[in-house]
């Protein structure tokens, strides 16, 4: 899976978590999940679950507080994909 594919899939997941109408294309690399998109701590918990479902990688080693931007989340998924899958 390429970085761009990860970004596209993740942006699609994030767009569904945002209360106001926003498309995945409008989410930029440096969009801040909390401050720009309104992703609160509950939405982060949902997002981490969906990341594991979608990409097959748990982000257990990643502190949710360090996922500030879309780029941070994509980086974390890429790191996760290099680890052996859970179970």
């Amino acid at each position: 899976m390429t970085t761009e594919e990860i970004r596209t899939k993740l942006a699609t997941l994030i767009a569904k978590k945002v209360d106001r109408r926003i498309t995945s294309e409008q989410i930029e690399w440096d969009s801040r999940l909390r401050d720009d998109l309104g992703i609160d701590s509950l939405a982060v918990a949902e997002l981490l679950y969906e990341i594991e479902e979608t990409f097959g990688t748990p982000l257990e080693e990643t502190e949710p507080g360090k996922l500030v931007t879309l780029r941070d989340a994509v980086d974390a998924i890429e790191r996760g994909l290099q680890l052996p899958p859970a179970n």
Binding site: L42, A45, E46, L48, Y49, E52, P58, A86, N87
Partner: peptide, 9 residues
């Protein structure tokens, strides 16, 4: 792992 992530709230 497959439990709803917001099972508590």
């Amino acid at each position: 792992r497959k439990m709803h992530p917001l099972a508590v709230t």
